[in-house]
């Protein structure tokens, strides 16, 4: 048995170096030790290939891919859902102006900011350690909880403040803001120019127009949550740029998963919120998922 085999730590270790564990324990491994790519990388890689094929074949044998009735351009099913990995987008669409949530954020902001991360955060001391450090683990855990809590709060805020619960039960772009502002405008004591501004569709124009309630306020609210997160990381953990980036990426990844889950499971007919197992009309969200 060569020393290389003893250094090998990969998944096939029991197979390749059976009986040499005790020897291995005594070997002081240096992290930059190298082994031959064949067999120590190639054989596990082939094993992963076999595993992948086996799992995919098993799934394909036990479950048929969905095929609904033939496309009918005259009839839209209720609800109509995107594939699960776009449910996050569909969820975002409910809360903001579609140019912002459907085009600017997913096709510009997200990819550009993701690509920019390593150019902003240039500290490499902690490369190779999961979540960087003990501090990083705490920040990741905190950010996960923070993001889910903020996400739930925002989704509920948009669902429960509506202009008229009977006529407008569904969240709309900036709908909650429109509702709250309309309510506020009815208060006395506002300057005349504000309350007597021209109305469209029954609302003062600054409420009706989406630039305030569909762009500035929702984006501002999200930005506030993000800035608050950065400040918490800065002051609670004395975090530097790498901790901030860790928190921001975690926020993005958790938001992606969270909005995907909410959109895919918790939205039923007419995009109303509900428990996945208790949607109206016996709607099963799993039917539209894959």
């Amino acid at each position: 048995m060569s020393t290389e085999a003893q250094q090998y730590e990969g998944p096939l270790r029991p197979l390749l170096i059976a009986g040499h564990e005790r020897t291995l324990e005594r070997v002081n491994l240096r992290p930059d030790d190298q082994v031959m790519a064949f067999p120590y990388m190639i054989v596990p890689a082939l094993a992963v290939a076999l595993g992948t094929i086996a799992v995919m074949t098993f799934c394909s044998v036990v479950a048929n891919a969905p095929l609904k009735e033939i496309a009918n351009p005259d009839h839209t099913p209720n609800p109509s859902k995107a594939p699960w990995y776009f449910m996050n987008l569909q969820e975002l669409l409910l809360h903001m102006n579609p140019s912002l949530s459907g085009v600017i954020i997913p096709t510009n902001l997200v990819p550009l900011l993701l690509m920019a991360i390593p150019y902003i955060d240039r500290k490499v001391d902690n490369v190779g350690h999961w979540f960087m450090s003990r501090k990083g683990q705490e920040i990741t855990l905190f950010t996960t909880i923070y993001t889910v809590v903020v996400g739930i709060a925002l989704a509920l805020f948009d669902s429960y403040f509506t202009l008229d619960p009977l006529r407008d039960p569904v969240p709309r772009s900036g709908g909650a803001f429109k509702a709250v502002l309309t309510y506020l405008v009815k208060f006395e004591g506002w300057p005349d120019w504000l309350t007597s501004s021209p109305t469209v569709g029954g609302f003062p124009i600054f409420i009706y127009n989406d630039w305030l309630t569909g762009w500035v306020l929702p984006f501002g609210l999200v930005m506030t949550a993000i800035i608050a997160l950065v400040l918490i990381v800065k002051f609670r953990w004395k975090g530097g740029i790498e901790e901030v980036m860790l928190a921001l990426f975690t926020g993005f990844a958790v938001t992606w998963l969270f909005t995907t889950t909410v959109g895919a499971l918790f939205r039923g007919p007419s995009q109303l919120l509900g428990w996945p197992w208790a949607h109206p009309n016996g709607y099963n969200p799993l039917d539209d998922l894959l």
């Binding site: 209720n78 609800p79 008229d164 407008d168 039960p169 569904v170 709908g175 569709g201 007419s270 995009q271």
Partner: peptide, 17 residues
Amino acid sequence: PCHGSLYDRKGEVQGGP
């Protein structure tokens, strides 16, 4: 059915996005 927009007979928006 998609995002719950509401329109009256005249096609004017009554609710939704």
